[in-house]
Amino acid sequence: MKSLTIRNLSKTYFDLYAGTNHTAIHDVSLEVAEGDFVAVVGPSGCGKSTILNMIAGFIPLSGGEILVGGRPVKGPGPDRGVVFQSFALFPWKTVLENVAFGPKMRGVGKAEREAIAREYLALAKLTEAANRYPNELSGGMQQRVGVVRALANNPDVLLMDEPFASVDAQTRMTLQEELTRIWQEKRPTVLFITHDVGEAVFLANRVVVLSKGRVLDDIGIDLPRPRSWDALNEDADFKALSNRVLQLVRSA
């Protein structure tokens, strides 16, 4: 695991209909320390997914630089694992093959990569589902696969793009708790994008509030771990922090 540094990142689109340039991201700088968990929260259209897509290398930057472990990155690469809102599992591969995909791409032999995949499936309590196809699983289980598929490739940084936005509320709480547990066990460097304030405060060590392509505030979350919804739902600190972030997002 390594640190993630974003310096003076900007993104300008040419708006075909208006015929003018539109700046989506203005001069965003952000540092995620090695093994840290940072959530970026903001209303839709604030540019949070654009930032993630630039870090992942899916879209080009207009300005600034992105460093992983101090080295600049260009284009998508296995150093930055991505968990997608749409899961993006390969429907023609079994759960095991999906999780073993990253190691397979770098030439790890079949027995070894399947051993890696099984280890990570066990981490997400998915051992039973190993030989099933993604369309045979519930949304919550599919995204568990999505998370461990990224982790099994041992990335330097884990980028999560609203990963739990398309599962039902109960499943989402379970997935959030599992993510905090897995994070504590593996300590990956995580950048987590969400529009859900409660989710951001629950998961992260730091919450960055984004508005109109600018960083509005950066709030430390010093809630004790392990975190569970049973404990935090009525917790005064959690409520105070959530309210503070919510006010910022609403003022944005």
């Binding site: 992942a56 290398g57 899916f58 284009g75 998508p76 690469g77 296995p78 930055r80 694992g81 991505v82 997608f84 749409s86 993006a88 599992l89 390969f90 995909f101 990253g102 791409m105 770098r106 598929r149 990224a150 490739n153």
Partner: peptide, 19 residues
Amino acid sequence: AMHRAALSLGASRWQVLWE
């Protein structure tokens, strides 16, 4: 997203084509 997932898991262009 499927292309992106493969690329960020380390697939080359040919691997994306094949996989």
